[in-house]
């Protein structure tokens, strides 16, 4: 490093290499991405958002929602979920006894407690999840035994992980999910819950708007600030509530004779939230959807 030219070249080559790797290569690999197809259907994914939801993404960006919320489901792996779907001529008690007779099988040793717990107090309601295993052979052996015992069962492929168990999505988020996001806001902090699947978890626009206006009216422990400025307080006309007015619990509602009405931004934001879904299987994120 005797001359400025050497320093320049070293810096140029190293930054240039990472530019090629992390800017150019992703553009070439993913820059032409197109809609993909939902597994075992001919439906396209993701769908272009409606006008309101597209505008709502801009409200989400302008208010910096991504400072506290991620839009990204993670999964740790895949597993087989063996579910009982029909008992045939058997009675629930018979089946429980049959299941317990299987506990002596050595390959089932680590699942014995889980199955026993799931059958404990079972009243025969179907479908009934028996157990979840990462072992394909065990799952198919179990399905064979259940078939031989004369009951109907179904083995589904499910994603595993804390995010999935929390109901934040049915499978991990993949690159294809963000095709229509402009800008893509994955978020880096979960000071609030993940929103990748919020449109499935809370599909009610009114509830979403209640939550935006007074977060504590929906989630008592919420640390989310109120987005009051996306709403206006109006005097009721002739004492009648307008159709858009929020239906809030008493302690959050406006004073008598007044009502809280969402501005267009609030409606757009709610429409955007409802458009967030992570509930369809894709080639790169498969699972067996429930029927």
């Amino acid at each position: 490093m005797k001359t400025g030219v050497c320093v320049f070249l070293a810096a140029f080559v190293s930054l240039g290499a990472s530019w090629c790797g992390f800017v150019l290569a992703p553009v070439l690999q993913l820059g032409g991405a197109k809609q993909t197809v939902i597994l075992q259907t001919t439906d396209n994914w993701p769908l272009q958002r409606t006008g309101d939801a597209t505008l709502g993404l801009q409200v989400y960006r302008a208010n910096g929602c991504a400072a506290c919320h991620t839009e990204q489901v993670r999964q740790t792996g895949m597993a087989n979920e063996v579910t009982l779907t029909g008992l045939g001529i058997r009675k629930p008690e018979d089946f429980s006894a049959f299941a317990k007779s299987l506990f002596v099988l050595p390959e089932l040793a680590s699942y014995t407690n889980a199955i026993a717990a799931s059958l404990n107090g079972w009243n025969g309601a179907l479908p009934k999840t028996l157990f979840i295993t990462g072992d394909n052979d065990l799952a198919s052996a179990m399905a064979d035994r259940l078939k031989a015992a004369g009951v109907k069962s179904e083995t589904r492929l499910v994603a595993t992980g804390a995010d999935i168990a929390r109901g934040w999505g049915l499978r991990q988020s993949v690159a294809a999910d963000y095709l229509y996001d402009q800008p893509v806001q994955l978020g880096s902090l979960r000071a609030g819950p993940d929103l990748a699947n919020i449109g499935v978890r809370v599909p009610d626009a009114n509830l979403q708007m209640n939550h935006l206006y007074a977060p504590k009216s929906v989630a008592p422990n919420s640390t989310m600030p109120s987005f009051k400025f996306l709403f206006e307080v109006r005097q009721k006309i002739n004492g009648a509530a307008s159709p858009d007015a929020l239906n809030l619990p008493k302690e959050f509602a406006a004073a008598d004779g007044f009502e809280i009405v969402p501005k267009p931004e609030a409606k757009q934001l709610a429409a955007y939230l409802l458009s967030l879904k992570a509930n369809v299987p894709l080639y790169e994120a498969p699972f067996t959807p429930a029927k």
């Binding site: 992390f22 800017v23 992703p26 553009v27 820059g31 032409g32 991405a33 294809a176 095709l179 800008p183």
Partner: peptide, 24 residues
């Protein structure tokens, strides 16, 4: 300049290319 030309232009790249460039 790279980040702004890619991400702040009228024709930003599609999908997750955006966060990749932003992380870089």
């Amino acid at each position: 300049s790279t980040a702004n030309l890619f991400l702040n232009s009228n024709q930003a790249p599609r999908g997750v290319v955006q966060p990749i460039i932003a992380w870089w």
